[in-house]
Simulated scan of single mutants.
Amino acid sequence: MLECKNLGIQFGGLKAVDNFNLNIEKGMLYGLIGPNGAGKTTVFNLLTGVYKPTTGTIRLEGNLINGKTPTQINNMGIARTFQNIRLFSNMSVLDNVKAALHEKVRYSLLTSMTHIFGFGKKEKEMDELATDILKVFSLDDKSDTLSGNLPYGEQRKLEIARALATSPSLLLLDEPAAGMNPNETEELMKTIRQIRDMYNVTILLIEHDMKLVAGICEKLSVLNFGTELASGTPSEVLNNPEVITAYLGE
């Protein structure tokens, strides 16, 4: 599904990511972990075209995506959430998800201006598609609520729902459990497994909650100062002395 070879980016004299390699098989739940400032979100920005790599290649299902724009990369099948929530806070829960359906359901400029020529049918189709996704996250009963009025944990879930609406083959989740209480995190773990299976999507996530990481990820890579420190199964990685030192210090 995803192959990164010798991936790197340099800002002036700083190598934020250096010689990073990653192989993720289709359908896998993969975790990218590391201390704060290790370069994890920078990797996500490289994968989604926000940053252009200084070195190395990125391939999605064999197709080179280096140099593509974020929109082109999204159309090729990569969607993401953000460490800092970026919902349309003054739009409803339903409309946030519908905003991501623009590639699935289209109508002409004339139709959008006049609300005729099939406008109602297209809007109904989008409503149904968005509601089906919201049901997965138990948010369908809040479809008319302004997204900015949702509790923090539900805003996190809505951002995942919106990313999922673009029909990605690879879904990148940046700290999806941040700010959640233990019960919410447990529910999120079940939801992530569910969307992987229901939507046949491969998932790469950044997370600091090691219970979540150990509970759902099949493989992990650890970044430290922009370079890969270790990779393997959660048990192998989380018991690696170098990884423990990177997180806790000497």
Rank of each mutant, 00 (worst) to 15 (best):
T69P: 12
L22P: 07
S169D: 09
L129C: 14
L64A: 11
S221W: 00
Q194S: 10
N183Q: 04
A79W: 00
Y30T: 10
T202D: 07
G39A: 07
M210A: 05
E228W: 00
G226K: 06
C217K: 06
V243N: 04
K157Q: 11
T42D: 04
P234I: 09
E236Q: 10
R156W: 04
L87R: 05
T55W: 09
E125L: 15
K104G: 14
R156N: 12
P234V: 07
L110Y: 00
V43G: 09
S138Q: 08
K52E: 11
P241C: 11
K121G: 05
P35H: 00
I216Y: 03
F225W: 04
I73C: 06
T111I: 09
E236L: 06
R106T: 14
L150I: 09
G8V: 06
C4E: 04
M126P: 12
L2Q: 05
G153P: 04
V237P: 04
K104R: 15
Q83C: 11
T55D: 15
N181R: 07
E242Y: 07
L109R: 11
E159A: 14
F117S: 01
M198S: 13
L110T: 07
E250N: 14
R86K: 06
L171Y: 01
G31P: 07
M198G: 06
V237S: 02
E159W: 11
T42F: 03
F117N: 00
L134R: 09
R59G: 08
M198C: 10
K5P: 09
R86N: 03
L60S: 04
M1N: 06
E250G: 15
I244A: 04
D141F: 04
L158A: 06
L173P: 05
P234F: 01
F44R: 10
R196Q: 13
K124W: 03
P176M: 04
T54M: 12
Y107N: 07
S112T: 03
Q10H: 00
L129E: 15
Y199A: 13
G67N: 14
G215A: 00
A130K: 15
L87Y: 02
R156H: 12
Y152L: 15
L164H: 14
E228F: 01
K157W: 00
H102Y: 09
G8E: 03
D209Q: 03
